[in-house]
Nucleic acid binder design. Structure first.
Lengths: 188, 188
DNA sequence: GTTAGCATGTAAGGAGTTACATGATTTT
DNA sequence: AAAATCATGTAACTCCTTACATGCTAAC
């Protein structure tokens, strides 16, 4: 199992795990949670919802979504399709959040896991943060190696770009170290 | 014109502009120049070469590529197909390098332009750097706005991730400002 | 009355990857 | 004799975006 769009599926389940929502609203939450960049189009989202529904992880409900606290008579507006997690969906989300695979060290996967750290056990959080840091340290080694290998014959500006990229990764490693230290302190 | 793969095409023309190369070697140079990340697969590169050839921007040559300085009798080895820029290809590359479109402010496009700054006029370099900086300042405004809008209801960790992303963009703006100042100084 | 925002969806296409197919040469 | 590196190429597949189709309500 687990082969297809994984990260997106996980994010959708994660957002739905705080309450039922319809597609349009879901997309906005997704953008907030994963960063404005990962604001996917409806052309991705709606097929994803159908896929999750077909897999029995979410279902249509007729409840008003949580966003509508003091419901305006939901007068007209086009019919919304509100989705909620099923029991299987909750289970699947929990499996994702607390039994991370190697996708959790990659850029997108890591961001998605971090976004739902509130639903992840402290022990697992630490594992994800450390795994991510190792991943970046590997990348750092590769970058340094390639820079010292081809650095001399590179354009001055290209060199600056590479060095800037390297600094960025180093910065992220320091950031992760901070998070790890805090996690260890609060866990103790 | 100009609709399809643009950035990749530009990068290939750019690498070939320092001398003829065959696909295998070209791919390695491309990785050095654009960062190891942008190391595209042969499944992308070879079709790209055929596309450029069909467009008359590159052509097959029987010369040994520059990489073979003191040629080992090129004994066996599978037949290599060495490509060189045509006159049209040189012209097209120059148009790219010195008449940048809006793609030059985006992540990939900017990296590609920077990689060939050696072949770009100082005046144009400045324009690209400043355009990129404006682009990032826009992004900064969007991020800040979305952070202050949805920041309160965000998970502590998600917030940290967003802030880290924001810091990263600010850092890039400072970096660009350095480059711009240097460019202005050397231009004077 | 027209624009903006809400709301769902499909079809076509772009850009890339992986896995495969093929085969030689050099190094271990 | 196996493994690594050189070298070119194709087919299938993934994931995503854009543009379109539809239609309602609220605000200007």
């Amino acid at each position: 199992m687990a082969k297809r769009n994984d990260v997106l599926d996980f994010a959708v389940l994660g957002v739905l795990s705080s309450g039922p929502l319809h597609g349009y609203e879901l997309r906005k939450r997704l953008a907030d949670v994963l960063g404005t960049f990962r604001a996917l189009s409806y052309g991705s989202l709606y097929p994803c919802l159908r896929r999750l529904q077909a897999g029995g992880l979410i279902e249509e409900v007729s409840l008003t979504p949580v966003s509508e606290t003091s419901a305006p008579p939901l007068s007209g507006r086009r019919a919304r399709i509100v989705y909620a997690l099923t029991a299987d969906g909750k289970e699947e989300f929990d499996r994702w959040a607390n039994h991370p695979g190697p996708e959790a060290w990659e850029d997108e996967g890591f961001a998605a896991h971090l976004a739902f750290f509130g639903r992840t056990e402290s022990r697992v959080r630490l594992r994800i943060l450390e795994g991510r840091r190792s991943r970046l340290e590997e990348r750092l080694a590769t970058l340094r190696e390639s820079l010292s290998r081809s650095g001399r014959r590179l354009d001055e500006y290209t060199l600056r770009l590479q060095e800037h990229g390297l600094d960025g990764v180093e910065r992220e490693v320091r950031w992760l170290t901070e998070l790890i230290d805090e996690e260890r302190a609060s866990d103790s």
